[in-house]
Structure formats: C-alpha cells, structure tokens
Design a protein around this nucleic acid. Sequence first.
RNA 1: GGACAGGUGGCCGAGUGGUUAAAGGCAGCAGACUGUAAAUCUGCCCGCGCAAGCGUACGCUAGUUCGAAUCUAGCCCUGUCCA
Length: 407
Amino acid sequence: MTYTSSLLRLLEERGYIHQMTDAEGLDALAAKQVVPGYIGFDATAPSLHVGSLVQIMLLRRLQQAGHKPVVLMGGGTTRIGDPTGRDESRKMLSDATIEANIASIRTIFERFLTFGDGPTDAVMVNNHDWLGTLGYIELLQEVGTHFTVNRMLTFDSVKLRLEREQPMTFLEFNYMILQGYDFRHLARTMGVRLQMGGSDQWGNIVNGVELSRRMDQTEVFGVTTPLLTTADGAKMGKTAAGAVWLNDDALPSYDFWQYWRNVDDRDVGKFLRLFTDLPLDEIARLEALPGSEINAAKVVLANEVTALCRGKEAAAAAESTAQATFAAGGVGEDLPELELPSDGLSLIDALVGIGFAASKGEAKRLIAGGGARVDGTAITDEAHRIPGGREVRISAGKKKHGVLRPA
RNA sequence: GGACAGGUGGCCGAGUGGUUAAAGGCAGCAGACUGUAAAUCUGCCCGCGCAAGCGUACGCUAGUUCGAAUCUAGCCCUGUCCA
C-alpha cells in the first residue's frame, strides 16, 4: 500500500516494517501531527550490541521524519528479566549496576538522536521511575484485571518455555503485564502514540495497545521490525570474540569496522538501507556491483555505520588501517599492539598476549594448523621465537592482524 | 508433602564399571579455493608442559571398588502427575 505520511513511507522503503497494528490509522496520525514513539531497551549490559541497532535506527528514522523519539530504558523490567526467547531465567542485577549500564548506554543514543526539550527532540525515560513505585495490590487491581491468564498462556514467550519443559517463574510471567503498562503510562503522561520493537516484541506491544484502549480509551499503535538475521541464518551481532558492541570501550572501532566490512554479499543492500542514511538510489547502485566489486559497497557500509556509531575519525582510521593492512600488506595504526621485549618473545606468548589465542594450547593449534604468520610468512614451528628490536607484524588467519612494537 | 522422570563439554545429545578428555550434530577456529564474501573439501576444537606426562571435568557431598560420568547413600535443582 502507498502511505501518505513521510514516516511510514520512509520505514517501508528502507525495510523496517514487519507488522503493524493499524497501518491506516498510524499513517493518518503521522501525516497530521508529531507522533511520539518509543522503543524499550534492556539495561542488562553497559553497552547495546549490533542486535539492537535496527531499533536504534528506527528511532533515528522517526526523528528524521519529524517525530519524537522516546528511549525507554528498562531499569524496572531489567530487574525482572524478559522471558522472550530465553530458555533460562535471567540473573538479577543490582540497582547500582543497572544505573551504571543506563548511563553508559545513553552515550550511544546521543550519537544517533538529538536530545533536548523541543517538540521533536529525543528523550530518555526509565520505567523504574513508575514501576518502582507501583504497589502490588495496585498492579493487580488496575492492570491485572485487564489480562486473562488464558490469553497470557497463548503467548509464544510462555508457550515455548512450557513446551520445552523449562521453568518460568511467576516473576517472569508478569513481565508482559509490566511492559504493557509501560506503553499505557507513556501514552498517558507523555502523549506517546507508538511503540516499536523487534518482531519478538509483537505480543508485548499488542498488550500495551489493548491496555491503553481498555483503561483510557486511547488509540495507540505498534510497529515491529523483521527479525534480522544474516544471510546464512545466524542472528546478527555474534562473532567468535563475542557480541559486536556499539560502545567503543567495549569493542575497538577497528573491529567494529571489520564486522561490517565482512558481511555476507547478500546482506549488503539490506544493511545499507537499514543502517546508513545513504540515499536509496545510491544504495541500489552499490548493491548491484558485480562480483568482487561488491567489496567497495562493503567498505562504504563499514565507513557509514562506523561513522554513525563511533564518529567520522574512527571510521577513517579504521579504513586506512584496513587499507594498509590488507591491500598493502603493511601495518595500520589501528591494529592491536603488544610490546616486544628487547630479548624477543615466543610466538606462542605473542599470540596469547595480543589476544589472538585464548590459551597457549590454542596458540599451538593455530600454529600447527598453519594459521600463524609473522611478517606475512606462515610459521609452523611451535617453538619459534620472534627476535626483539624491530617492529613485527603478526597475524592469526587472514583477518586478524597485530603489531609487536619494541619497548 | 508423595510418585515418577531428569541434571554430561558454548549449545543439543550419546554413553550405565575400565582402551572415555567422554560418540554424533550445531556453533567456533585454521588451511585449501576465492574477493577480508558464500558454498565446498581438510584439519583443529578443557588447561598446563618442548615432551613423556600432569591437572581439572559429566548437579553437590560422602562412600563401594584396583578402577566410577557410569554402582550406593544423603543433599541441591528442574519437569510431569497427585495431595
């Protein structure tokens, strides 16, 4: 269908929309007024990772289309743990940890959104502010009456857990109620009319929409994004080294850049549309590049996303390091470094020290497998020693490179 | 509270006294081929040690035994059903 609002047109053509509660209603609303919309984020870690980037970009698009993004931090719900997609109950975090996490996560959003007091400026709220003061009886009376257990049991998050015979505590069972309550609270106090989220949040979003209608007769809307997987079916944002974090103190910018540089060919166009501000015709040109030329599009993708998330300088530094390292076979300044003692260092210790191997055994296996290189030459002798006094380039596999610098 | 079933390496899942650091699969790492892609093939995949070897590991603890993930007892946890 063709939308009249710039918001839905933008979201549609860039591939953000999976499901909507009432497309026509939302389209009409967005065409005539500023729509405050929110997305909820967990505060379980001090950084969000690439898996949340679609949601972050969604808020950015909302602002670009002239609406007001509201970032909801789950300071309250994190104390419970979202059962969605999890087999096991989540560990509880201390209040201090949660607060610190929220502060750290906020720095990411400040790169993607313009915060302030204006009508379309972004704001960040914490659901602990209202959930924390909500009494149990009050919750049961006000909110609980609008949920039937019959219906709650039909939700995937609950059903899956029961089918797999995994435990689900009553605490977690209440999560959906609280999340629905969030929406209604924001609708009442801030005029929020839209909640967005991943497709796994559909049930929670619908609950909030219905809760607002039942308690306040307010019409609010929900939009979910498609579940983002890479072309080979894996969830986004996982690598051997762990999650691809957005905060630069959790993952070096060079590694972040490399993540995007190495995406599957088939994902390039999709990612460019979702994660960059490049115009669509430019993206169409890039993703149509034949054969190995597609690598140019990946460099653009890596530059754009890194610039957005880490800043232009970080992107430029990462690119020039990659250029120097891969194309010229030299050494870029963004590579991981390790001090090289004047009397040299064993190859094994060097690999472990720079973080290319988790243990000496792993380093040995790497060497035995022919994956260890010193100055570009494969070394298969486990006992190899690197002499000191000179800068040495060390590699594990084709992609991981580092530098040993004399002390 | 009772009956029954179960708790194995990152995940799934075999194994019911010794040749088991524990089959198989997934995930991961490396090599070949390439384009820092995919697919495919090959090797690797607990830690320490140059090595022979040592140390840890099958929910926890204590036993039986020359020897236990495998047998016994107690405990903890989970599920299903019953109260």
